[in-house]
Simulated scan of single mutants.
Amino acid sequence: MGFGEADAPPSVVKSFIDMPTAHLWSRNAGEILVGEDPVEIAGLWQKLYEGTFWPGRRGLGMHAISAIDIALHDLAGKQLGLPAYKLMGGARRTKLRPYCTIYPGLAQGRSIDDLMAEIFRQFDMALEAGFRAVKMEVLFYDLVTDLELIRRIGEGRKALGEDILLAIDFGYRWHNWHDALFVLERIADHNIFFAEAALQHDDLAGHARLAERSAIRICGAEAAATRFEIREWLTVGKVGVVQPNIGRGGGLTEIRRIADLCEIMGAEVVPHGWKTGITSAVGRHFQAASPAAPVFEYVSPHVFDSPLRRELVSPEPAVVDGYMDLPTGPGLGIALNEELVARWRADC
């Protein structure tokens, strides 16, 4: 059995997978897969893409294909006794570099001082857990002005010190690239690794103007799918970092193609990875096989208190002085907590 995960509504993804065959371009996923060799992952990806082209292609259809593709990597790796990254071409680095996402939650009646106190608490927990790279989520919205936001990011850098890699997630704060640039220019001396979700997601023209003027790497494409959309982000949006979710953008097969595209075009890929331990494991194998991925997002169960993240799969790799070892187990190298699944299962 192979495990996969899609970052999408389960009932809707299940409906897509279960839909009966209607015609050549709208086929049932099970009919496409049953009897096939799971080792032929890229070939199966193409059959799924073409066989569900009419109702799929992007959106929930691609989310479903993503989960299936991840599960095929897990299954094929288990059958061959190989880690999934070896099915993607093998290790392109000797160790992994995760960054820990620091998320205090939305305000919900709390003050900005309350949110910053929670950020500082999570900073301490991340550093204690071994991380040397973090992303500070500043989804403060109307709680702060842009000038106040600049000051709070400075406080974050001061709390971490200069030796810790710091990225910032703005949560799609601005509708105009001028406003985003105003802030980015004033935090550039804080050594910010990248700026995520500064503008509205589909404003590719605004991203291009911002990227041309900012000294900080500009990210985009968090909700994009397939190499075809990512190509638009690189050629039209001009971003330096693309962030498609592996569980939404096409699975490990497609994110590997996206990484190759980024390597050719001088860009980097740092996938969105906020989900369970399945997605965390997928991120480890992706970075192992991808030189264009300088870091990868990691939701640490030592920092983010979620039973689903903490207990769904094991083992949990150690972070030592900012790095993880390459995965060694077959497939994704994880075991599912069947008792937790039985306890929390919700049939769609």
Rank of each mutant, 00 (worst) to 15 (best):
E5A: 09
A6P: 10
P10M: 10
S11L: 05
S11T: 07
S15M: 14
F16C: 12
A22R: 15
S26W: 13
S26E: 12
V34T: 15
G35Q: 10
D37H: 08
A42S: 15
G43V: 02
Q46W: 11
K47H: 03
K47P: 05
L48Q: 00
T52C: 01
R57E: 03
R58A: 12
L60R: 07
G61P: 02
I65D: 00
S66G: 13
D69I: 02
Q79E: 14
L80Q: 13
G81S: 07
P83K: 11
L87R: 12
M88Y: 06
M88A: 14
A91E: 05
P104G: 09
Q108E: 14
G109W: 00
G109T: 03
R110N: 10
S111R: 07
S111K: 09
D113H: 14
D114H: 14
M116D: 08
I119F: 04
Q122Y: 08
A129R: 12
K135F: 09
V138P: 07
Y141N: 12
V144S: 05
E148H: 03
R152K: 13
I153W: 10
G156M: 11
A159F: 09
E162F: 02
D163G: 08
A167Q: 06
G171K: 00
R173I: 09
R173D: 03
D179H: 14
D179N: 13
A180W: 07
A180D: 02
F182D: 02
F193E: 14
L199A: 05
Q200I: 11
H201R: 13
D203Q: 08
L204P: 00
L204N: 00
L204F: 02
R209N: 15
A211E: 04
E212S: 14
I218G: 05
C219N: 12
C219Y: 04
C219L: 10
A223P: 00
A224S: 13
E232V: 01
K238C: 11
V242N: 00
Q243K: 04
G251C: 06
R256M: 12
D260N: 14
L261A: 06
C262Y: 05
C262A: 09
G266P: 08
V270R: 01
G273C: 12
K275R: 15
I278Q: 11
A289I: 01
A293L: 01
A293F: 03
P294N: 07
Y298R: 14
V303M: 00
F304P: 01
D305C: 04
D305T: 11
S306K: 06
P315V: 11
V320N: 06
Y323W: 10
M324R: 11
P330G: 06
G331E: 02
I334F: 09
L336E: 13
N337Y: 09
E338G: 06
A342T: 13
